[in-house]
Design a protein around this nucleic acid. Structure first.
Lengths: 208, 208
DNA sequence: AATCATTTTAGACTGATCGTCTAATAAATG
DNA sequence: CATTTATTAGACGATCAGTCTAAAATGATT
């Protein structure tokens, strides 16, 4: 349960900074649930129950499920980009070791939820043909953002001679995220981190 | 529309061999729709309308939506395995060219539907946490079947020295399907065959 | 302090759609 | 003609996203 305490009716006090707290709980619960079950399979009632927020509040803060989903995508995209940077910009490690660190961390994260949660962006991407068309460009933009961050890291490795100088790092980054989403999908299906490791191994073999 | 003619109530005449036709129409329409929209997002009404079959008939032929889905998975798995064999066992081509042929054919197939249809097995795998648990082993088995067929083809290439003799072809095949599903997902999202080509290029680079 | 305005919540309600089921219908069978 | 078997029509309750009204609790105004 994300926010177990009950809420009081009426306007909240100003010094008790409830401001945006309900909204925040909803988004947190939404990201968690969408990451696990996807958009179509997730009912508002489920998010509401997880956040301990009454239904009446939802439509006070969000215009629709579609608008809520768009914010959840943005939220997840930013959260994940920050996590990525924490690894890929860590100057204590060699560039490729940073990527290895991210991969290990991602597997640990999936294991923590018994491989039931995947990637929100991947989930919604797969559902695209049943989703609001406006999500398409948003999801694609998130991928491109992640790719740019990875490409920068790969270029650092390339400058150190750890990636052949002829290789196109942007293309390699593209390749990585294409395959990584497949690996996450498969890890969810098999309830195992092995697909993540198999893909990672292949990816690193490709760089040499 | 898969089967446009209307149906009469009551037991059908014997000489007009409708036998199994309704059921067949349902499965065909089901595979098409599940390949496009996934399991949860697809309502029975949509399949029924596509097959031009009345709702009451559905539960005459199938015990439940879950049972119907299981048959659709099996149907798609077998259909796809046959398509795979048509390429991978084509002795007129060198083993790796057979794989290239399959990839090109798959891209053409996706383009034909404007990249709106993906892979039924991949779709349902992604939805797994909202699906009947019984699907898990079934979907995994389909993947393993496809992997075995690809691995055999790769071993042929290895025997011809086109893949390093130290490489584990089963593992390479596993890598391929992990990444391929990611590429299909991305192709759907971008409405473009480019992700398929980028993944394929990387995969072949990995073999050398 | 009393009043008013604003923000938020409670939860019943709507219409659509979901998967499922029963009773009726029509042909085959004896 | 009576019975059995195959098929369908349409009703059913559950659940869905989304709406709405009234109540409640605070801030602002006087």
């Amino acid at each position: 349960m994300v926010n177990p305490q009950p809420r009081k009716r009426g306007r909240p006090p100003k010094q008790a900074p409830d401001h945006g707290d309900t909204r925040e709980s909803l988004l947190r619960a939404g990201v968690a649930t969408l990451t696990r079950k996807g958009f179509v399979a997730t009912g508002l009632d489920e998010i509401l129950a997880l956040a301990n927020v009454p239904k009446g509040s939802f439509y006070h803060y969000f215009a629709s499920k579609e608008a809520f989903g768009a914010e959840a995508i943005a939220r997840y995209g930013a959260y994940f980009a920050a996590k990525l940077d924490r690894h890929l910009l860590d100057e204590r490690l060699a560039p490729l070791d940073r990527l290895r660190g991210f991969i290990a961390n991602a597997e640990a994260g999936m294991r923590r939820y018994e491989f039931r949660r995947g990637c929100l962006v991947g989930n919604l991407g797969q559902e695209m043909s049943a989703l609001p068309e406006a999500y398409r460009s948003q999801l694609d933009a998130v991928f491109m953002d992640w790719e740019a961050r990875l490409a920068a890291c790969l270029r650092l490795a390339q400058a150190r001679g750890e990636i052949g100088s002829g290789r196109d790092c942007a293309r390699l980054a593209h390749f990585f995220w294409i395959g990584w989403e497949g690996a996450v999908l498969r890890a969810k299906l098999r309830r195992s981190g092995e697909p993540l490791r198999i893909f990672a191994e292949g990816f690193f073999a490709l760089l040499a």
